[in-house]
Structure formats: C-alpha cells, structure tokens
Write a protein that binds this DNA or RNA. Sequence first.
RNA 1: GACCCCUUCGUCUAGAGGUUAGGACACCACUCUUUCAAGGUGGAGACACGGGUUCAAUUCCCGUAGGGGUCACCA
Length: 469
Amino acid sequence: MSVVTRFAPSPTGMLHLGGARTALFNWLYARHHGGTFRLRLEDTDRKRSTPEAIAAIEGGLRWLGLDWDGEIVRQSERRQRHVEVAQALLASGGAYRCYCTPEELKAMRAEARAQGRAALYDGRWRDRDPADAPPGVDPVIRFRAPREGETIISDLVQRNIKIDNTALDDMVLLRADGTPTYMHSVVVDDHDMGITHAIRGDDHLTNAFRQTQLFRALGWEPPAYAHIPLIHGPDGAKLSKRHGAVAVGAYAELGILPAAMRNALLRLGWSHGDDEIIDTAQAIAWFDLDAVNRGAARFDMEKLQSLNGHYIRESADSDLLADVVQRLAVQHPAAATDQARRRVEALLPEAKARAKTLVELADNLSFLVCDRPLAMTPKAARLLGDDGSEARARLGRLRATLQDSAAWNESNLEEAVRGFVEDEDVKLGAIAQPLRAALTGSHASPGIFAVMAALGREETVARLADAGD
RNA sequence: GACCCCUUCGUCUAGAGGUUAGGACACCACUCUUUCAAGGUGGAGACACGGGUUCAAUUCCCGUAGGGGUCACCA
C-alpha cells in the first residue's frame, strides 16, 4: 500500500513554525516512501477562515519548498459528504440527536469541574425518547461513543497509548445549524482521501482516540498516527506571538534560506546520529518516524542562524545576487544600477563567509553602493586620525601610486599595496586598516584587495581623495 | 481539577545494563590573518530527585517533583 500523508492546517492565521515542521515531516515521510503528500484546508469554521491565511499557508509551503500532490482539498467544499455520513450514522443508531442548550452544557461542565471531574457531556440525550424534544430547538447530532472498555491507538511516535472510554464523551458531529464539525470532517476526509499516515502535532493526541472510535463505528480503518511533540519558545512555553518571529514568512524577511529552515526544523525532535548538516536529499533518504523524539523541543534562533550561515556559504553567487541587490535597493536606490550590481557580484564570494543571514550579507555590502563622501563609523574615524595625520598622508601617497598602476584586479592590487608598504617601511597592517576605513567607512569588511577590485579604480581613488591627505 | 505525554551539558540531541556519557549551537582560550567573519585546535558544561531489580543503572520498574498537552455546537 502506497503511503499517503497530509498537512491539514486550519486557515485562521499565519503558517507558524510548528505547522511548518508538521508539514515538513509529512512531506519527508511521503517522499521517502515514494508516496503522496496532500494539502487539506480545515476550514469548517467559516467565520475564522480567511483568504489571507490560505495565501500565507500556500506561500509558506512554497517558500519552504514543500510541494503537495494533487488539488488542495477544502473541507468546506465537502460538507455534503460529511453530512451524509453523519445522517447514515444517525439512521443506524451510531449517533443521536441532542437538544441541550448552550447554557445547559455550560452548567454541566461547571458542575463536573466543581466535582473534580473532566468536563464531559454526560450523554443525557443518548437514550432519551425523541418525543421529549423541546419545541423550537434545533438539535446537534452526537456520536454514540462506546462507554465501556478502552480505546488504544498505536502511535508511531508515542507508542501504544490507551485511554479508558469513560474519559471520552459523545462528541458533536453536526452542529445545530447542520454544519459538520472539524472532528467529524477529519475522519471522513482522512478516509475518503485514503490517508495512510496522519502525522500531526501532539495537541491532537486526545483527538486521535475520538477519531479512532468514529472510524470504527463507520466500519473504517483509521490511519496510522504519529503525534509529534510541539515546538516551544526559548522559555519552554508553547510557541506564541510573544516569542517574536513565529510565522515562517518572518524568517524569509530576516534573510533565512529555506534550506536552512528545513534543516533546522528537521533537527527539532528528529535526529540521525550525530549528523547536523542534513540537506533535503539526504533528509528524504534518512527520514523515518521512529527517530522522532517524544519530548517538546525549544526553538533556537542562534542555531538556525549558524545553519543559515552554512547554507549561505554553500549557495551559488548567482542564487544570492538578486536577493541581496533587492535588499540593498530598499535603502540605497543606487543599488539597482548595473554598476552597483557588478560591484556586489564581485564581492559576493568574499562576503558570503561573513554573514549569517541575507540581511547581514546586504548590510556588509552596503558600502559598495553608498554615496560619497562615506559616513565613517567612530572606529573608522579613529583609524584615519585627524586631518593631516600620518595615516591620511600615507593614504594620499598610496592614491598616487594606485592612480596609474597596472591592471585593476585583486592580485595586482595586492602586489601594488605590498610593494608600497615595503617602500614606506611599514607593516601591511599600518596601511590596511586606514585604507579599509577610507574605502568602506568601517573597521571591518571583506578582504581589502577584493574590496578595491570590486569598487574599481575610479571609485577607489575618489574615496581615497575624500579621506584627504 | 481529571485524563494523557515528557525529563541527558544553557539549547538541540547521540547513546548503551559495565563508555573518559559523544556531537552541534552558544560561551571561553589559542591558532590562521590586513580587519571582521569563516576555518583549525583545545576548554568549561548534563544523565531532575527518591526507592527498588541487578554483581553492576544515567539506561529496566515504581514513586516524587517539574514541564507540556487535552478536556467547545474552535480547529
């Protein structure tokens, strides 16, 4: 039997880290087994489902590179089928009408709570004569859940877990307005879509018992379940907005590469020995559910950034260029010119090793597209010294040398500068730092010869002239 | 509160009935070096606690504590 997994978010908000990892695991599992990965929108709650959220989920998955198979299934469009199944169950006695009012249920829960019991529906309409139905009240359809014995789910991550059936109540299948609930829709859809493996967050664990009961009542076989632990914030609490960036879209803006994100998410709760850097092809080959942990993991931004630095270094310059130019152009319109683009391109190989994010990469290259005269950081200003300082005077002499030096390329420039310091009888360090300050406005930058080469003769000389002598 | 799950360095994790408890991020030092990174070398840093079982437990069992999840006509 071929594997069929699904990612089934409710489109009520952004695609967050937890959802992204759930999607990743489902995708990897399907790809590993040569199966199918489906996307299903659980939008049975029409009020809370929005087009923006749907766009965010699709966009997030695309950004992550998780492609789904076939059409997207919208649960709301399958309502007719869900209702039919519920009605059939009602007809066969597997479900019944419940006429409780919201107030009645609320009171029931409050009382159960006060007595130290779980807040469950007590089944008061389970066997009651329909003739007792109060007039003018639209009933809900409830599942007639087994009351004796226990329900066992064999979870691929959590092992076998059993629960006493008395801990579960008769859940609502159809609301008073006739619309199906999530709990019911999931069962029908998982069955109809032929889902073989339901990989989802830990928070669905108790749902699995109810859904398993419903599957059985319908005469269907439930999928294999795999409940993966939730992702927590740095403080150990459930990930939420107060932890800062939780939506995957935010990470794209922060300059995180999809490959790094995938690797980071993969290693949260899953491992393969001591391996840390795991690219997607390798992940597909290795991924399996038995290596998934059972404890919740905290999300570590530093580790993501470290991983991201690795993937930036591994990236082809051509894959980075457009993104970096675009980020630069936000602050510096000049970055959009061909000349600026060439400078960025020339220095990209050097700059790549120095950045953990694309934002940082763009920042580190911004001096290339800044207008003259360059603004100096305090440290850079100190390197240059006051007007008439020795450093400035020396830069002046260097400028004269460079003005009509041979071909303008990195190795020639290095030769020229090294020759110059020899003539001046100083160490390379004595000229390199002031030179860096004059050319970049900063005390730290990519290799100084590469910087000169990228800037070009004209701009280099002009910046040296700005530094004065 | 009831039910269910979890617990190895600060964080993510590997691990086996007998190991100097391994790796990664972060941290510190050294190194490389024109700076900053990256790289290299080294350092500090963990089996929550209490009982069992056993020749031997961090590993198996039971408790305790702590953490998490679920208890809707939300999903």
